[in-house]
Simulated assay, not measured.
Amino acid sequence: MAALALAGLSLGAAAPAAAHSYIVASSPAEGSTISDVPENFSVTANELLLDLNGDGSGFAIQVVDAAGLYYGDGCTVVSGSTLSMGATLGNAGDYRVYWQVISADGHVVSGEFPFVWAPGDGAVNTPGLGAPPVCGESATEPTPTPSATPEPDEAVAPEPSATATPVAEIDGESVASVNPFYIAGGIIGLLAVIVVIVTVARRQSMAGTDNATPPSSDGEPPADDPGSTTENT
Rank of each mutant, 00 (worst) to 15 (best):
S21A: 15
V116M: 05
A60S: 13
S147I: 03
W99M: 05
V77Y: 00
T76Y: 02
P214W: 00
C135K: 11
H20T: 11
T143P: 00
R203I: 11
T213D: 11
C135T: 12
A207Q: 11
L89G: 00
L49P: 00
D218Q: 06
T145N: 07
H107D: 05
V43P: 01
T233Q: 07
G122I: 04
G106Q: 12
A162C: 04
V134G: 01
T145W: 01
M206P: 00
A164R: 12
A66L: 13
P158I: 00
A25E: 05
L48V: 10
I23R: 05
T199S: 13
V101S: 05
G208F: 06
E151G: 02
S161I: 02
A13K: 15
A176M: 13
A18Q: 14
N125Q: 14
V200I: 15
G93M: 07
I23Y: 00
D218M: 07
N125S: 15
F59N: 01
V196Y: 12
V175G: 03
S27F: 02
N53W: 08
P150F: 01
A18V: 13
D55N: 14
Y98H: 14
T233G: 11
G54K: 10
T199L: 12
P226L: 08
L191R: 08
F113K: 10
A67P: 02
G8V: 04
N179K: 11
G58Q: 09
A3W: 04
G120C: 02
G219T: 12
P119T: 09
I102D: 00
G172R: 11
S177T: 10
P214K: 08
D94Q: 12
P226I: 08
Y22A: 09
V134F: 09
H20M: 01
P221E: 13
N46E: 07
D36L: 13
H107A: 12
N40L: 11
L50N: 07
L4M: 11
P221D: 14
D171W: 09
A123C: 08
A157Y: 08
A45E: 04
S228N: 06
P144Q: 12
G86N: 07
G219A: 06
T76R: 14
V64Q: 14
G172P: 03
G12Y: 09
T209A: 15
I61M: 11
E112Q: 14
A19G: 03
N232M: 06
G12E: 12
F181Y: 10
T88E: 03
I187G: 02
V63G: 03
S174C: 09
A184H: 06
G90S: 05
T229A: 13
T233H: 10
V198Q: 10
S81P: 07
F59S: 02
A92W: 01
T209G: 09
E231K: 11
S161W: 00
P28W: 02
A45M: 05
D51L: 08
I187D: 03
Y22W: 14
G31M: 06
N40P: 01
D153G: 09
E169P: 01
V124M: 09
P158E: 14
T33C: 04
A13C: 06
G54L: 10
T229M: 14
S84C: 03
G58Y: 06
V24N: 00
S42I: 04
C135A: 12
P152F: 02
P132K: 02
E231Q: 10
N40A: 10
S217R: 03
V97P: 01
